[in-house]
Design a protein around this nucleic acid. Structure first.
Lengths: 123, 123
DNA sequence: AACAATAGTTACCTTGAAGTTAGTTTAGAA
DNA sequence: TTCTAAACTAACTTCAAGGTAACTATTGTT
């Protein structure tokens, strides 16, 4: 059953909405980005604490690597023992923060309405 | 306004960022919302076409139900045979669209930088 | 000798999101 | 009589995100 794609802009690989969500729709990326947006430099374990410490080491590593790959943060490795690594937000990362903040504000002021709607829907 | 974030406020059930992402971090919600934000009323199969038609019937149903439960869209069922159902965006849904648009604009203008960064990172 | 400290890595496992396929409903048309 | 329409629903399968726990490396400290 073939279906034709009417508008090429909706192609998944080109869709801008999708490209954002694919990066930030995961569980930890935005949280980590916001934490690094508030502080200047943070070490691995400091981020772990700031995020709320229910993130596993593994997922923090994975999340930081993805953010670094996309250019939102950068890593500075100090060749010491025990190891020391500092994470810092880039200008690109900073430019995204206000948008997330706006979305957060929207969420805060509209959550009551959403929750009411959900309750109504259950019945 | 306290800028410092205490650990207890990062509790997942209270975190506003998380409450947004839990709803829109999925594969189809935002796409469907934007489609309904552009057109006024659409039937099930019309949405299916607009989204790009690589969404399965099941996932479209699931997505529409979630959006309806949250109060972003509403359904009008016409008791006809064959069935006719119209979907329309609510004011709450409309109020979210500009934020998504802003994020989209950011994504469009920053994707080149992100892609360059990803290429560099691979090496 | 053993341990602590930091920033990981690796192997394994669980869970849930999403996809696939088939079936349901009812009236009218061929 | 069988087919077709639209908008689902149910049963089943697949796959990747995420979690857990153990392990790594190296040095200084007890």
């Amino acid at each position: 059953m073939e279906k034709k794609i009417k508008k090429s802009e909706w192609d998944i690989t080109n869709c801008p909405v999708r490209t954002v969500l694919d990066r930030f729709g995961d569980k930890w990326s935005i949280l980590v980005l916001l934490v690094l947006g508030e502080k200047q430099k943070l070490r691995f374990n400091e981020i772990n604490k700031e995020v709320g410490s229910d993130i596993s080491q593994k997922m923090l590593t994975v999340t930081l690597r993805k953010l670094e790959a996309d250019g939102f943060i950068f890593r500075t490795i100090y060749p010491e023992i025990p190891p020391k690594v500092e994470y810092e937000i880039t200008d690109l990362g900073k430019s995204l923060v206000p948008h997330v903040d706006n979305l957060t504000k929207w969420a805060v002021s509209n959550m009551p309405a959403i929750k009411r709607s959900r309750e109504r829907f259950k019945k």
